[in-house]
């Protein structure tokens, strides 16, 4: 019988054999970059990390609302990205690709197990001496308001704010139609403004009141 890891070199050989077998099985699949040398792949990956890890972490934080979970998610996201790096067809699509992996990992790893709770006290906002106390207070109130915002509104808003994605890109990442995304962005900002200024009157307050009494308006998902 054959031992898979008598030595490290045996292990490496075995890995090569398996990869070769997989390559032969999948030879019809057109994937860009498969035959590029490993160091090129590594350089591209390092560029990807350098460019996006902070944005990915920040979105992970809003998604998970917990810094430790966010860090785990980012680790898992980039590990997945590295493993399937050859499936990235275009560098221009890298950011949306990473955010999509992140959301999938969050759903896979945590959404089933973690109750939907708000960790308002678990804030990891950097102390910035340049901010006046009232500015810090405002940021703290805003943080609390975002945490209280329903997930369906928080998700597209933070994709727009942190990721800088267009409505179409957000629709693709969330698997929603564009109109639904626009509705949620509109409601997200309206609700935040009302939460930050409870005495506000006008359309924002009407949206908040409307949401409190009826959640059914225009929330269609892509079939």
């Amino acid at each position: 019988m054959y031992s898979p890891w008598s030595t490290a070199s045996d292990l490496a050989k075995l890995g090569t054999i398996i990869q070769e077998q997989q390559r032969n099985k999948m030879s019809e699949t057109p994937v860009i970059g498969r035959n590029k040398p490993d160091n090129s792949r590594k350089r591209r990956y390092e560029t990807l990390v350098d460019s996006y890890y902070q944005d990915v972490y920040r979105y992970a934080y809003w998604l998970a609302r917990n810094p430790a979970v966010a860090e785990d998610l980012v680790q898992e996201t980039f590990l997945r990205a590295w493993r399937s790096f050859d499936s990235l067809q275009s560098e221009g699509a890298a950011k949306a690709w990473l955010f999509t992996i992140l959301r999938r990992e969050n759903a896979r790893m945590y959404e089933r197990y973690r109750p939907d709770m708000v960790d308002i006290d678990d804030v990891s906002i950097a102390e910035d001496d340049h901010n006046e106390p009232d500015q810090r207070q405002k940021l703290s109130e805003l943080h609390e308001a975002i945490m209280k915002l329903e997930k369906e509104y928080r998700d597209p808003l933070m994709l727009q704010i942190v990721g800088g994605f267009s409505g179409k890109e957000i629709a693709d990442i969330l698997d929603l139609n564009n109109n639904t995304v626009m509705t949620r962005l509109f409601r997200a900002r309206s609700k935040l403004r009302v939460m930050l200024d409870p005495d506000a009157v006008g359309p924002d307050a009407e949206v908040a009141a409307d949401d409190a009494s009826n959640e059914s308006t225009e929330l269609t998902t892509r079939p």
Binding site: Y53, Y57, R58, E71, Q75, L79, L142, I161
Partner: peptide, 22 residues
């Protein structure tokens, strides 16, 4: 919102840890 997101502390060792993956 952008200022708040930018002020979130990214774990200092995170980048090195991600690069080790490769």
């Amino acid at each position: 919102l952008k200022a708040l997101s930018a002020s979130l502390t990214v774990p200092p060792q995170l980048k090195q840890s991600l690069l080790k993956t490769a």
